[in-house]
């Protein structure tokens, strides 16, 4: 059970959150101009990285806010918590 430091509410148990998967995937502005492969890459392909993973979490049972987390997928350590729209920090 992870302890996630909500930027607003402070540390809360994982059960209060939902994970929104990999962060920093931007929706293409003109989907109609993309090839099937390019669109498929946006919709389906994820890094599933071993080590530092940048991912989105939502504090659904608390303040309802979305934010980004840098988490080590091996140790499950949360290395950084940062706002939506912010660039991923160096960890």
């Amino acid at each position: 059970m992870l302890l996630i430091d909500c930027p607003w509410c402070g540390p809360r148990d994982e059960v209060e959150f939902s994970c929104g998967g990999e962060a920093h995937i931007v929706r293409p502005p003109e989907p109609a101009n993309l090839s099937d492969a390019e669109w498929g890459d946006y919709v389906f392909m994820r890094q599933n990285r071993k080590g530092v993973h940048y991912e989105r979490w939502c504090h659904g049972h608390g303040c309802g806010r979305w934010f980004n987390v840098a988490r080590d997928t091996v140790s499950h350590q949360v290395l950084a918590v940062y706002a939506m729209g912010e660039a991923p920090p160096e960890v």
Binding site: C9, R12, V15, E16, H61, G62, C63, G64
Partner: peptide
């Protein structure tokens, strides 16, 4: 605090 009560909110 918005939080969990058993299996509810």
């Amino acid at each position: 605090a918005g939080t969990i009560l058993a299996r509810g909110h």
